[in-house]
Design a protein around this nucleic acid. Structure first.
Lengths: 132, 132
DNA sequence: CAGAATCCCCAAAGATACTG
DNA sequence: CAGTATCTTTGGGGATTCTG
């Protein structure tokens, strides 16, 4: 910020340091698995019980939901609240940090929506060129 | 957009439609793998040859780099240019669409950098509570 | 109802070797 | 130098069972 000179190239990852690249890789490692963003997406609606979550996320196994929630809880993105009732009841909700993640995620989702038609077209064209 | 009423809740994934969630899941499927963001990150510096890419990305195998580049090329995020020389030379570069992806990615990287200390602390605290 | 433990399978990805 | 094919290994993740 010492220079007042305008940048000549568009903002891109090149201007992020090594650390940002590492950080990005790590967060993608965390949320890039099969179920995490689904859980975050559903929990962004509000707190929810384990079984309700499982119903909301088609195809997730009991085991994988447990593991996904553990991972998110471990990183402080999700808060787990157990009620010592019978039968047991456990609520999961996003922490403020977890909530804050939804913002960059929305940016990414917006990009995806904007570009997906073009991407699908490119894909079709590419596949066409391969087989035809 | 028919209402002029201010929204009462923070922007989060809950307000994205089903389509956005799907789109987000798909883009994460594409970039959430082990090597894709590394390639995008390196290519955001400018065009680069295959071998140079491999040197820039520690640990990537010949095979995986090829497959990653194919996937990106297929989706129109990367442009491949082959020169019919001997020995052969192939340049890879981000397309405008590929470049545009770096913007939401930077947002995510920024989030990651901002939160990573807290996340690591949460993780340590969680692990402490488990074993100790 | 929620979670832990066990078993098992298959797809992702590394290593290697061959080709243009 | 770049790309493809084959073989092998690994671990992510599903199904199931048991417990509090």
């Amino acid at each position: 910020m010492a220079k007042t000179k305008l940048k000549l190239v568009p903002d891109n990852l090149a201007h992020e340091g090594e650390a940002s690249c590492k950080a990005l890789a790590q967060i993608l490692d965390r949320i890039g698995d099969k179920w995490t963003i689904m859980v975050v997406g559903v929990l962004s609606h509000g707190p929810m019980r384990f079984n309700a979550l499982q119903r909301e996320i088609p195809g997730v196994s009991h085991r994988m939901l447990t593991m996904t929630l553990r991972g998110l809880e471990r990183d402080g993105l999700v808060k787990r609240t157990a009620f010592a009732t019978i039968p047991p009841r456990v609520d999961y909700e996003l922490t403020p940090v977890g909530q804050s993640l939804t913002e960059p995620l929305r940016a990414l989702a917006g990009w995806a929506r904007g570009k997906q038609a073009g991407i699908e077209a490119a894909r079709a064209a590419f596949d066409e060129g391969q087989s035809g």
